[in-house]
């Protein structure tokens, strides 16, 4: 069972009106932006369930876009994000849709820009908590509550140990860890949620592991 903090109960500080439809949406946008990394020129939000039905009244649209503009859920500018994005020359669109078997508050964020097209799917599961469930074609699961390391690698024995060895070398504790793969021996992904952020040096070391094709360190939102 989750251990509650006083600040889970009183908090977060956020722009209203809804922790799941506004604050959670901003967090999904923010994480999607971090996953993208580079400059974004256009973004489409495919809204599912309650997100699709009430996104205007709850400001889910503004919150998602604010996240894409790197704002956090308590940023005053959140409510003006549509105008801010226009001024910055970022095209955006909100498209109600149906995503199969998805949580009622789910969005697929499809971003285009200097790194090509990347899509990130996330759900807002209540109280501002979120879960990211898909990046491009890869199903996975992480919350964005912790510094999170995401690698993609070839599914071979020993890769996981090499990564955790480097993390251990930094004296950083792993809170949660999950490994996913498409098929035995093929493309796989690792999600490691830690108590502290890995130093750049350690990330460079992980990048050098030959089975690993990409490494992302995502700061908590």
């Amino acid at each position: 069972m989750k251990q509650y903090s006083s600040f889970d109960i009183l908090g977060p500080i956020m722009i209203g009106p809804s922790s799941s439809h506004t604050a959670g949406a901003a967090r999904i946008g923010n994480i999607a932006r971090k996953i993208y990394g580079g400059k974004i020129t256009s973004v489409r939000f495919y809204l599912h369930g309650s997100f699709a039905e009430t996104y205007r009244g709850h400001g889910t649209d503004r919150a998602l876009l604010a996240g894409i503009l790197c704002m956090d859920p308590s940023d005053d500018r959140l409510r003006d994000s549509l105008n801010i994005a226009k001024e910055m020359g970022i095209d955006f669109e909100f498209i109600p849709t149906v995503i199969k078997d998805a949580h009622p508050n789910t969005v697929m964020v499809e971003m285009d820009g200097e790194n090509g097209r990347i899509s990130v799917t996330g759900s807002s599961i209540g109280g501002g908590s979120i879960v990211i469930t898909r990046i491009d074609d890869f199903n996975l699961e992480f919350t964005g509550d912790y510094p999170t390391l995401i690698t993609s690698h070839v599914d071979r024995p020993g890769v996981i140990a090499k990564v955790t060895e480097i993390i251990k070398g930094c004296d950083i504790n792993i809170a949660f860890m999950k490994v996913f793969r498409h098929q035995k021996g093929k493309e796989a992904a690792m999600i490691i949620e830690m108590d502290y952020t890995l130093p750049d040096k350690a990330i460079d070391e992980i990048k050098k592991i030959k089975e690993i094709s990409s490494v992302m360190m995502i700061e908590p939102v």
């Binding site: 009183l10 908090g11 500080i13 209203g16 922790s19 604050a23 400001g59 503004r62 959140l78």
Partner: peptide
């Protein structure tokens, strides 16, 4: 203020802030 997209503290939720 919450309904107008102003800044609040969820206490314990935004709806009951």
């Amino acid at each position: 203020v919450n309904a107008s997209m102003g800044r609040i503290v969820a206490a314990p939720t935004a709806g009951s802030c």
